[in-house]
Design a binder for these strands. Structure first.
Lengths: 338, 338
DNA sequence: AATAAGCCTGAAAACGATTACATCAATGGC
DNA sequence: GCCATTGATGTAATCGTTTTCAGGCTTATT
């Protein structure tokens, strides 16, 4: 493996000049540049990234902490992040939080000890103030979450607007008795979606009876259980606004097992618009989340923070409703299906 | 940020000794070790990974090339890889091939220029000989593919056995007219699964008529199209062995639209056992692929190649059938449903 | 023609670890 | 009691860049 010195020698210049040719900030005479480039070519020169980092104190790496790598839209997230970063010759160093607070913290420590130039963090568990403190130490962008006081470094989706959209759609179809299956309360996206539900109900002058909101775990199974819970509580409902697609599908399959049909007896709206949302019959109406745009914004923002790249654009994205087959007007016969 | 020299000074030893304490290969007196550790603690010392890499010519990074990051089991794959590597304080550098040959090659170049200590490659497009040549340059483990001459560096699933399992299951249920929807011919896993199909058919003395095998694209839509193709060809079939779950679900939904019921009129077996395989009704019977074990083996193997870590274990894993509701004996009335 | 203002380039000092080699003391075998 | 071995440590070279500083050469300004 050849070094910058060998290239310099072959081109008849100093190592400094070779460095300048590579980094292209400082002006270099055309003739010199050509000679250096030719020499690099001839030797198949590859700059040593360790030496470069040591001298420049830059790693050209961006760290990514994901609370759960196998989660729903992590694939889409990573594709978009990786693509954008690589355009700028930056690498993506990935660490998983494995769904545990302590491991998320460890991941951050790990990536910091690797001296990443910036950090992208997708985490529900870390406290707001931990993130604020972190942002003071290193260029940071928070993904899929809004941290008060750090708005300009958070790329996220307007989950409340999504919840509102889903619920208003049900209301517009004539539903008055709408229950809600929400995600874990400690997750920001879950509570925001729930807030949107309440907002739409209130706006329509509809009351949300005690017990009409059931907390699930995001898992399909908890969607099934939530249906049982609602029935046990004896609450009448003709529609369900559900916090994500998995729970919605769980609820839907379970309703069918109970002999109720969707959307005739119960209408349903999911959230996330997963690829498999239309695998159920009828296809699940759901709220689409623009993960790709969120990821692109996050990478743009981290580039601007870590490398002063020019950047502008929104950091908060709104959702839209994808109508399939799980919503219909309530049949008057079924206003009280339980 | 403090340096090794400051630690050495505070502990009253030489930098070399501090280095030895950190790396722990060479013996250090207990008393000295304690003093050094205390000094590191006091200063909050973090070794500079750039300097370390430059001097030791090791990056402690493993590169991962994924042909398509958002693909089906990439999440599971990455969780397991990351976890194992981090146990050994190694980082995972991720690059995506974005489903194009040229970008896969670029990804490899990119990771090589980063001087990763080893490479994990999941690719269908790169030629066998490219991979063999690559393995001569850098510790390499190929994921989900068997490269002739590189068997000891490939972690993969026995797709043929899986295809065999699926087809034999259909045969055992009494099916005689079985069609197959396969993935793209140029993908090794697709052809292997198809080979398993042929093996089972042959073993049972069943012929595979011309046109009974339709090539799809792995996408759900191509499953639908394949059903049309088969019907257009006028081939009688009572069962379908399908190359993956998405196409299987596409076929299933389309059969229903055509007024055929599953499994009464047509039985179906998918492949991959995706989380959403049971979202369709009835749940899709499918072949389970042990991605986690494949990933664990891959990380163990790359550790052994790149860092001489002890390692042993299998690199080829077999699948098993997960029975749900899409397979039943053929009803004699429907031997020729088309 | 003298001076100033750019350009372009080279010399050399970082950057902060690892590691080959040397040293010295303590131990053990004979 | 001598020599060889082993263990613990220090010295100093090394890894391959980037970057500061200084200087030489052009060109423009007066």
């Amino acid at each position: 493996m050849s070094t910058i010195r060998e290239v310099a020698k072959l081109a008849g210049v100093s190592p400094a000049t070779v460095s300048r040719v590579m980094n292209g900030e400082v002006p270099v005479a055309d003739d010199t540049r050509r000679r250096v480039e030719e020499a690099m070519q001839r030797l198949g020169y590859r700059p040593n990234s360790f030496a470069r980092s040591l001298a420049s104190n830059r790693s050209d790496c961006i760290g990514l902490v994901i609370s759960h790598l196998a989660g729903p839209f992590m694939g889409t997230l990573m594709v978009n992040l990786e693509e954008r970063l690589r355009l700028h010759q930056k690498s993506l160093l990935v660490a998983s939080g494995h769904n545990e607070l302590i491991r998320e913290q460890e991941s951050i420590d790990f990536l910091m000890s690797r001296r990443c130039d910036g950090l992208l963090v997708q985490s529900d568990r870390l406290h707001d103030d931990v993130l604020v403190a972190l942002a003071a130490q290193i260029p940071l962008v928070v993904i899929n979450r809004r941290v008060p006081g750090l708005e300009s470094q958070c790329s996220y989706v307007d989950n409340q607007q999504g919840g509102y959209l889903a619920t208003r759609h049900l209301i517009e179809q004539g539903h008055r008795h709408i229950a809600c299956i929400t995600g874990p309360r400690w997750k920001q996206d879950a509570t925001q979606r729930l807030a949107g539900f309440h907002q739409a109900m209130e706006e329509a002058g509809l009351s949300v009876p005690e017990g009409a909101v059931v907390e699930g775990t995001w898992q399909e199974s908890s969607g099934r259980e939530a249906v049982d819970t609602l029935r046990r509580r004896g609450l009448p409902f003709t529609a369900l606004a559900v916090g994500n697609d998995d729970m919605a599908i769980g609820a839907m399959l379970h309703l069918k097992e109970l002999g109720l049909s969707v959307p005739e007896d119960v209408s349903l709206v999911g959230f996330d618009d997963e690829v498999y949302a239309h695998y159920v019959t009828p296809g699940l109406t759901s709220v689409h989340v623009p993960v790709d745009r969120m990821a692109q914004a996050a990478s743009g923002r981290i580039m601007s923070l870590a490398y002063d790249a020019p950047w502008q654009g929104p950091l908060c994205f709104s959702t839209h409703l994808v109508e399939r087959g799980t919503v219909a007007p309530p049949s008057s016969a079924h206003v009280t299906p339980c």
